[in-house]
Design a protein around this nucleic acid. Structure first.
Lengths: 165, 165
DNA sequence: TCAAACTGCTTGCGATTTGCAACTGGTTGT
DNA sequence: ACAACCAGTTGCAAATCGCAAGCAGTTTGA
């Protein structure tokens, strides 16, 4: 990858890491689709990333400290990818991007419902979801639960539309 | 550009428009640096975009309805680029990206101060700044002013650090 | 008045990146 | 034993990127 940076501007530096067509989609799938294995990320995403690109992006996300990788104890060949705190804190970026796309681009109904909930929920909902991600990705102790989790609500909303069709 | 989209996901569609290393930097310069002419965008940015790439990106941003272009009445050859409402509403995306970069990447002090103010100011400050952008880019009527504008405050903070050095 | 500088781009071309397809070496389930 | 599955790797063609130079028209300054 590129070692030399074009400027010290935070937006530029962020773009040097995330400014391509795939990196944020991989993070999206890890966050919202709970995809943690290479194969899951490869085949269960809408857009169809190719394996060499996926391998390359996972490597740079590892290098940047946005994700980690560890061996799956139940399967010698599987690796489990997890978001770091740094990766989890990309949620607001994704949420704003989703809101903007939801408002201005020709999104499909079933894939837009998550954006709508995320947008309407605002920072409070994001914070709840980030706490849930810390539980599943960082192994943070589970807090008291009141009702369904944000992740479950996002998933339920998605399925309610898919089934209706 | 690519006409066929990979999926109807709002994050994916946003990335198909903005997911490269330059588009958001151009918008950043229009927003925070008030660069409105081709040459300004070409030469007065930190990162040094090349002219063919700039021309190409401006064209797609025009096609996407994120910016507009009109002739400069004071100079027959100059064009003036402006942000549309759709473009102005990318501010939260940039702000979140700047906050994340500010927190996790090795930014330079003078370029980080804007990110810090933007991050600390939160959605309230963003809304004020977006109103100012509507004034300068959309010609919206100027509202009552109480103290310096957000744009002026961002600029003053930047210069206070540059001069100190 | 006339040359120099500046305007928004465009063109040519080599270097890099992308993306498809096939393949590898190993593991797991039946 | 054998098929299916695992995380990637490799080869190669096509697309994109980015530097440098060029262009036609406009404005500026002596």
């Amino acid at each position: 990858m590129t070692d030399i940076s074009r400027s010290g501007c935070p937006i530029n530096l962020s773009l040097e890491v995330l400014g391509d067509k795939w990196s944020l989609l991989i993070i999206r799938d890890m966050m919202f689709g709970n995809r943690r294995h290479f194969r899951e990320l490869l085949t269960k995403s809408e857009e169809g990333i190719s394996s060499n690109i996926l391998a390359d992006r996972l490597k740079t996300l590892l290098d940047e400290g946005i994700i980690t990788r560890e061996d799956d104890p139940t399967h010698k060949q599987k690796g489990i990818y997890s978001l770091t705190e740094q990766g989890i804190e990309l949620l607001p970026v994704l949420a704003q991007m989703a809101s903007w796309g939801y408002k201005y681009l020709p999104i499909s109904e079933e894939l837009g419902i998550r954006a709508q909930l995320l947008s309407e929920g605002g920072p409070k909902l994001w914070a709840d979801f980030m706490d849930e991600l810390r539980e599943t990705h960082l192994g943070t102790k589970r807090r008291k639960r009141t009702g369904p989790s944000v992740g479950e609500r996002l998933q339920a909303a998605y399925e309610s539309i898919v089934k209706r069709k």
